[in-house]
Design a protein around this nucleic acid. Structure first.
Lengths: 335, 335
DNA sequence: GCGGTTTCTGAAATCGATTGCATAAAACAA
DNA sequence: TTGTTTTATGCAATCGATTTCAGAAACCGC
């Protein structure tokens, strides 16, 4: 491996001067600069970034914790973050927690061991007081998931309000028996949505049968199974509000197989407004999340904290959602 | 920041001894060991991994280059690699090239600057002679994409044979005018598939109308547009072989909207056997890629090279595919 | 008690960069 | 010419770990 010392020797100069050339320090004579550049060229020299990291005490790397990469929501979120990071010469260390508490802790330790300059959490498995512990080792930004218990910048959407609006929409379409499905039990996102959902039911004086709540539903296949479950209930719901478009799509497809009419027999609302929502038949009513904005803002906030040393403790950015009405809930004509 | 020197001072010992405790060196007296552990505990000490990397000359990090994270094929591939890597205490640096030559070169430089111990390529934008240049800086493994021009271990599937088999299947179903869609023009994967496809047509003496070849088709939306295009052609195909299940699904959904019967008017074959293939109606005939195996084997090969210093220059692992026949091509009764 | 092993421990070098400080050389002013 | 400022360069310390080497201490057998 060729080091800065090799370059210095070949150029007949000191390591200091070579380093100065490398970092565009002004006080280097043109002639010497040329010598150094020539030597670097000839030796095919590239600085060792581990050494630079140690000396400069920064890694230019941000860790992003996501539960799984195969969930499109997180894939798109990452894509948005990646764009901003790349533009600012930062690397992304993508960490899959797989909804595992232990793994999450290991990744949080990246801050402790100084392997990253900052860390963005998009979901969380551990209690907030445990996570708060890590803020002393480096900046943490919350994106999507949130908690006012941990004093860090947060970029998110109002899931309570979104779920409330979705439920109201179903109720206004004449639905009276609305089922609810979600993934993670502990996540703030799921809790908020459930709160919003319950609030709407309460306001309209509608009941929530315990059998209509389905947990641990993540993908299309889970959606199919969930629909099977619902369609076998003695007291069937006439609508279902799901945690993701994937799940909703699985339900639609299974419903069609069973000749359950959507939206007349069962109205369905998804979440995320992923491409599939507008492609599936009937079109899926859903909550459009500002995924790109969320990712972008979260990374920008991180950069603000790291590069500009700004201290933005609890600084919440609340992004707007939009209820996209399509045919999967279009029962107006049947009221 | 607490360093090994702080621990040494508090424990009343030298840095050497602390380091020995850290690395489980056998020759440390129990009593001293206890002192060191106590000091580490009290100072909440964690070794700085940048310093360790510099000293140990390894990063325990592998870079994985993928075009985009939002393509499920790559998301699942990454997931498989991540599992193996995590089990071997390796970190993954996920790098999105976005099909950009310049970005890919920057990521390849991670090897030069010693930021990673190895690099896995799952696609490639640059010419092979350029990529070959980088093999001198660290181990490269090819996964999915391949080339016999660059002398590195390769894990892949026989795309030629897979496409050939898919095309033969369509032909045996009575299709005579088969369209072909794919994404990346330059990729070895696309080239192989096209070769296999053409070989089948040739053997059966079938024509390939230029208008039936569609480029740059990646996702569901592209699939919809592609179907629109095909259905407006004066000389319409009676089957289409696509590059991914996403694209095929987009086609199926659009075809249904236009009352084009699948498979009778148009038989469709996808690629990958993603979850959606068995969920969509009609079920999608597709080539099941051993995605998990590919990711696993690729990472295992990398580990073999790095951890065990094995030198596996051109060592090709060819994994089996499977043609999964579903209703989207089931025209037997109509022959 | 004495030579020979074995077990512990620490000083100092090392990994490959950057930077504070000192100094030499050049430029400038009087 | 002499004194002052500016520019250019390098020595050596530093970042935080690991490891070689040498010496001290403990143990063993006779």
């Amino acid at each position: 491996m060729t080091t800065i010392a090799d370059v210095a020797k070949l150029a007949g100069l000191s390591r200091t001067t070579v380093s100065r050339v490398l970092n565009n320090h002004p006080n280097v004579a043109e002639e010497k600069k040329r010598l150094v550049l020539e030597a670097m060229e000839r030796l095919n020299y590239v600085p060792n970034s581990t050494a630079q990291r140690l000396r400069n005490q920064k890694t230019d790397t941000i860790a992003i914790l996501v539960p799984v990469l195969t969930n499109p929501f997180f894939a798109y979120l990452l894509e948005a973050m990646d764009t901003v990071a790349t533009d600012n010469n930062l690397q992304l260390l993508v960490c899959q927690t797989r909804y595992d508490r232990e793994k999450e802790l290991n990744f949080l330790s990246l801050l402790k061991t100084k392997q990253v300059d900052g860390l963005i959490l998009t979901s969380s498995e551990n209690d907030w007081d445990i996570i708060a512990e890590f803020t002393q080792y480096g900046p943490i930004v919350l994106c999507n998931e949130y908690s006012e218990l941990v004093n860090v910048p947060t970029v998110r959407m109002d899931n309570t309000e979104a779920a409330y609006e979705a439920a109201c929409h179903l109720i206004e379409q004449g639905c009276k028996k609305i089922a609810y499905s979600y993934g993670e039990k502990k996540s703030s996102v799921a809790l908020e949505r459930e709160n919003g959902f319950r609030k709407a039911l309460q306001e309209y004086g509608l009941p929530l049968n315990k059998e209509w709540i389905i947990r641990n539903v993540y993908d299309m296949e889970d959606g199919r199974e969930a629909l099977n479950y619902l369609s076998r209930l003695p007291d069937k719901p006439d609508a279902v509000f799901t945690g993701s478009d994937q799940v909703a799509t699985g339900m639609i497809i299974e419903a069609k197989k069973q000749n359950i009419n959507i939206p007349d027999d069962l109205a369905i609302v998804g979440f995320d407004d992923q491409p599939i929502a507008s492609i599936v038949e009937p079109g899926l009513t859903t909550i459009a999340q500002p995924i790109q904005q969320m990712g972008t803002k979260a990374m920008e906030t991180m950069i603000e904290v790291i590069l500009h040393k700004r201290n933005l403790s609890y600084h919440e950015i609340l992004l707007p959602f939009e209820l996209i009405v399509r045919d999967s809930t279009n029962r107006i004509s049947f009221n």
